[in-house]
């Protein structure tokens, strides 16, 4: 029971301290609000960029057109040869007839023209549709395949895709760095608030030390105070994230400028981000106060 009583007293003392040093607490909470909103923005951006990249990566293929004069045996050999090329995830073979069928289904004009072709008359080339593991080395993979026997033409996004993916990659990295930096700024702000609280209660801490209060009991209220500041500071960013993202998603119709770039659906995405914000607030709050307690509360 003793530890529970000590815990309850620490929580109540921390709460009182937040109220007692109201102006300082408000200043701290305001800073946390601003940083966490920026953190939320960075996470939303980073998650969406990640989503776009995955979407594009999923759609990206290498198409290998086989020589017209290749026999079934040659095609079988080529498949085996492609199979051993590094970075290959999946190979699908499409014969001339399959190609024709698909093109007819896709487009009415094609259908009209192709339906006039006589039986056995099909100028299309059979092909392999290849999915790769690593999108960044798709060019290299395509080049290797190009040099294989019976390969006529190899087609893929050629540059544009890689550039897009690498731009997304840079955006992602920059946002991660920004999030980490912001988290540290918040931790520093909280640590500063706790430092001032420690100084303002120096007298009380000295007396507690001298009358035999255990170190843990002296330190706990400060750790809880940091925790409270972190959690209180995350409330507004959570609301901004939930309402802001839902509003943005609805306003944009679920896509970013073009249908190719679709946004992540708001539910449960916003709740996950909100949870992350509260956890970041709490951890950063505790960490900030822990830093100050360690540095300025040498017992």
């Amino acid at each position: 029971m003793k530890p529970i009583r000590i815990l309850i007293r620490s929580v109540s003392s921390a709460f009182k301290s937040v109220v007692r040093n109201l102006s300082l607490s408000i200043a701290s909470i305001s800073c946390i609000i601003i940083t966490l909103i920026l953190v939320a923005f960075a996470i939303l951006l980073s998650a969406n960029v990640n989503n776009f990249t995955k979407d594009i990566e999923g759609d990206l293929t290498v198409v290998v057109f086989v020589n017209k004069d290749a026999t079934d045996e040659n095609i079988e050999d080529l498949k085996k040869n492609i199979d051993v090329v590094p970075n290959i995830k999946e190979i699908t073979y499409k014969s001339k007839d399959q190609m024709k069928e698909e093109m007819q289904k896709e487009n009415e004009a094609f259908d009209k023209i192709m339906s006039e072709w006589k039986e056995g008359e099909n100028p299309l080339q059979p092909c392999f549709i290849i999915l790769v593991n690593d999108i960044e080395s798709i060019g290299e993979t395509a080049n290797t395949i190009k040099n294989l026997e019976h390969v006529d033409i190899v087609k893929y996004g050629e540059g544009m895709v890689e550039r897009l993916v690498s731009i997304f990659d840079i955006v992602k990295k920059v946002t991660i760095v920004a999030v980490v930096a912001l988290v540290f700024v918040t931790a520093f702000l909280i640590s500063n608030t706790i430092k001032i609280t420690i100084y303002s209660r120096k007298n009380e801490i000295d007396i507690m030390r001298l009358v035999g209060t255990s170190n843990m009991v002296i330190k706990l209220p400060f750790l809880f105070e940091g925790l409270f500041l972190g959690i209180l500071g995350s409330i507004i960013p959570v609301l901004v994230t939930i309402y802001g993202y839902v509003f943005f998603y609805d306003k944009m119709g679920g896509v970013l400028f073009t249908d190719i770039i679709s946004l992540i659906e708001p539910y449960n995405f916003v709740f996950q981000i909100s949870g992350a914000l509260v956890i970041i607030g709490a951890i950063v709050g505790m960490y900030g106060s822990y830093k100050s307690v360690r540095k300025y509360l040498k017992i």
Partner: peptide, 16 residues
């Protein structure tokens, strides 16, 4: 140290 201080009462000049 806190365990020792629980066994010792301290009276200060400035009361604290």
């Amino acid at each position: 140290v806190y365990k020792l201080r629980r066994k010792i009462g301290i009276v200060f000049q400035d009361y604290k």
